[in-house]
């Protein structure tokens, strides 16, 4: 039996699928977030050096991970849209950008609130912080460029170019703490070595990261549905949708 994958790459057939998936991803996000918050505040012990302030980590690190991960996924879909001229891929990229920007903002915001009590400053122009700020501007650049171009297909192409060029920034963020002498601490969790932190702290962080992941997918699918309607408004199936709803 062969599955026709191209069937799902058409906005008309993916629109109802996305609608059915959204509640599942939102439920998973809510459950994981509840579990993550419980671990963050009631299971994870007080930090010996940082007291309770370290609990910001349970938001800060997952948000920072998502900010980089969403960017890579966004650039990949934008690139696929550019290479194969598939509308839905480009729409997915556009649907990811605002959520990615939000994650970047949360990472910067919580980092600032963590930096003040621990480093004594809200902000420093060091490599990690500056490259993460550049990531925020890359998201803004992608979104404003697309918003500035009237023809959606041309907007997709221009956006894909800026998204793909900007990918270079992601490894710079990730390795900045190794390459340069920064105020920001190094990675406590990496693929190459066992994590250097207490078990409950690690588990809390991973559960929250999973929650953010599920949330990001749900938010992306919701935005994707809106984008599909906005862009396919003149197609017959969207018109039929309107008639069914009214």
């Amino acid at each position: 039996m062969t599955i026709n994958w191209f069937r799902y790459s058409s906005p008309a057939s993916f629109y109802p699928i996305a609608g059915r998936l959204i509640p599942w991803f939102f439920s998973a996000a809510a459950l994981l977030m509840l579990a993550g918050l419980y671990i963050s505040f009631f299971v994870a012990p007080t930090d010996a050096q940082q007291g309770e302030a370290y609990r910001i980590i349970f938001i800060h690190v997952p948000a920072a991970w998502m900010s980089m991960f969403i960017y890579i996924v966004m650039a990949a879909w934008a690139g696929i849209g550019l290479a194969f001229n598939t509308r839905l891929s480009s729409m997915v990229a556009s649907a990811l950008a605002p959520t990615g920007a939000m994650m970047t903002f949360i990472a910067l915001w919580t980092g600032s609130l963590w930096g003040k009590p621990m480093w004594g400053t809200w902000w420093v122009w060091d490599a990690r912080l500056t490259s993460e700020l550049i990531l925020l501007f890359l998201y803004f650049g992608f979104m404003s460029l697309q918003a500035a171009i009237d023809d959606p297909r041309r907007a997709d192409k221009a956006g894909a170019v800026i998204a793909l060029v900007g990918v270079i920034n992601v490894p710079i963020i990730y390795f900045s703490v190794k390459w340069w002498n920064t105020l920001h601490q190094g990675a406590s969790v990496s693929l190459m070595q066992s994590p250097t932190m207490a078990k409950p702290m690690l588990i809390g962080m991973l559960v929250m990261a999973l929650a953010f992941w599920m949330y990001s997918i749900a938010a992306m699918l919701m935005r994707l549905r809106a984008i599909i309607i906005e862009r396919e408004r003149n197609s017959d199936w969207v018109k039929a949708l309107k008639e069914r709803q009214s």
Binding site: T46, G51, E52, A53, R55, I56, L113
Partner: peptide, 8 residues
């Protein structure tokens, strides 16, 4: 929050 309420 051990004195870090505003930050946390």
């Amino acid at each position: 929050m051990g004195g870090y309420a505003a930050f946390v």
